[in-house]
Design a protein around this nucleic acid. Sequence first.
DNA 1: CTTCTGACGAAAT
DNA 2: CATTTCGCCAGAA
Length: 126
Amino acid sequence: MTRTQASFPAVYELVRMVPAGQVASYGMIASLLPGVTPRMVGYAMAGVPVGSDIPWQRIINSGGRISPRPGSDRQHERLTAEGISFSASGRIKWAEARWQGPDDGWLDVRGMEMMDYLDIRAGWPR
DNA sequence: CTTCTGACGAAAT
DNA sequence: CATTTCGCCAGAA
């Protein structure tokens, strides 16, 4: 059977669940979608249509930084406007801004627990 | 049909 | 801390 199961839509659905004022990493999103790699999440974000209501700005890299690219300034602006604060070196604190994951209903249907991601590597993401 | 090209992350070196 | 390696999507040319 083919395994190209349009993963972008699933990524978008999850990204829409991240509330303003909170952020998630590409890896976090990927860990919630079997078969989807962090890189694929990046590809999906790059494909978000201009003017879309998908909160693409709330997805940053595991280092707590906005991935460098032309246009990353706009992402910084948007997050700052949402209340996210960055250190002088351009880093956010996961402990205070990290999205806690989708609701239990979403996880139950898939037989998952937020622990699946957060416990695998204690204290991660940094 | 083929080739190119991006918003990533972990481990090893 | 800096590099390298690999995983293997989707749309445009």
